[in-house]
């Protein structure tokens, strides 16, 4: 797609997103968190999903946003607790001794 055509598509899309019951990409951004948490009212949800259907950029953005959430969970949450072998024995003894001292 040439830059002229790409720009024309963006102009048309920008105009279309200002029609009644439509939201712009910037407004869409403000709804993402509540959409994913299931906190949008039915009408807001319909408007949000309508935008998703007609805007490739936001559709792909949301997919990447959700994949990011998934990856961060896997990267940190699924990493095992610090192995006992990695815990300095003197740290364990310090906790136990601190209790004896009380």
């Amino acid at each position: 797609m040439t830059s002229v055509v790409r720009n024309a598509v963006r102009v048309v899309k920008g105009m279309m997103l200002r029609l009644p019951m439509m939201i712009t990409c910037r407004q869409f951004e403000d709804f993402i968190l509540d959409y994913l948490d299931g906190n949008l009212r039915a009408t807001q949800r319909r408007v949000f999903e309508m935008h998703l259907r007609i805007c490739r950029e936001c559709r792909q953005y949301l997919a990447a946003y959700q994949r990011t959430m998934e990856l961060s969970r896997v990267a940190l949450q699924d990493s095992p607790s610090v192995e006992m072998g990695d815990v300095p024995e003197d740290l364990i003894k310090a906790v136990i001794e601190a209790r004896k001292a009380k």
Binding site: R10, K13, L17, T24, C55, E57, Q60, Y61, A63, E70
Partner: peptide, 18 residues
């Protein structure tokens, strides 16, 4: 976003799975 509040996002041809 551009001046029409349209998102600027480079197209995604693929997205890596976890």
């Amino acid at each position: 976003f551009d001046e029409r509040d349209c998102r600027i996002e480079a197209p995604w041809t693929s997205m890596a799975t976890p």
